[in-house]
Design a protein around this nucleic acid. Structure first.
Lengths: 150, 150
DNA sequence: AATAACTGTAATCACATTGGCGACGGTATG
DNA sequence: CATACCGTCGCCAATGTGATTACAGTTATT
């Protein structure tokens, strides 16, 4: 692996689908532990991933007993691009940030590559925007309530 | 940085532009050391990056005194997608390879995400294919001989 | 009020990848 | 033969990810 396995995006999507499906069908908040069990990762990791999503308004959390997580927006309007933007918005897709070369050749090439990077990032976002959490719920054959969050 | 800075692609492109420009104008092989100096990285690193490119036929190398590297194909036909394929062809762009969840929800989501991954990878390759090493030489305002390799 | 069940966050650890660095052998030039 | 390269190995530091533990804060339940 050249790129260290970045589970955050996958975990986030999984959790959102879970919240949009199970959570809304059963009308309850869901704890980090249950989410972690479902995703096969650590509860703390789940909370770390969900933190930024909460800031972005995609989920809500309730502390205390019977607390937990609920989806914070209409699943039909949560495009995968939004999740991506929240979690990896700043990271370059091509992973270039090469050492800036001293020579004239390098300076020009670096500039051009940055332009390519922007193009590629835009293309990625475009593809991700084509699917929403609600789409995933449907495609994964999960029955779910649809509509704005409770 | 979520993604560790992966300089390999940037270094490879830089070196190819250098070979297509300086190397062919001056009609000589170029040593790893000179390439490393131009790219501000280690000579060993340059050789490690160029190894796969040689296997792919994009460059040639000559051992021994007066040895060094030459470009191995017409720069106009070396699209950035080829370089990408050689160096990062196997790595997922989205970095998902999340832990396979046990529950039914997860299995379905994982499958869908893999489909998205394929779409996104294709989009990235498509954008990269729009530019060739020869294009970069031109855009970087470097005078260079154009045509098939010597 | 006391307890239990959660979130929220910090600290630490193991692990993997990247890239710098040194060493040594192979090979072509002069 | 001496020199100047490539080619590859091994070791090292730095970095990022995720697991784990611990602890503080908040809320429902009894």
């Amino acid at each position: 692996m050249a790129t260290p396995t970045n589970t955050q995006f996958a975990v986030a999507v999984h959790v959102l689908v879970y919240l949009a499906s199970v959570g809304r069908n059963e009308q309850r908040s869901i704890g980090s532990e249950e989410l972690a069990g479902s995703t096969a990762v650590n509860p703390v990791h789940v909370r770390r991933v969900l933190g930024p999503l909460r800031t972005a308004g995609l989920v809500h959390s309730k502390p205390g007993a019977k607390g937990g997580w609920e989806i914070g927006a209409d699943p039909r309007e949560i495009g995968l691009d939004r999740v991506w933007a929240v979690l990896q918005g700043d990271d370059p897709v091509l992973g270039l940030h090469g050492p800036s070369p001293r020579c004239a050749v390098g300076a020009g090439v670096q500039e051009i590559l940055q332009g390519v990077e922007r193009e590629v990032s835009a293309a990625v976002v475009d593809r991700l925007a084509r699917r929403s959490i609600a789409d995933l719920v449907t495609e994964a054959h999960l029955e779910a309530a649809v509509g704005p969050p409770r």
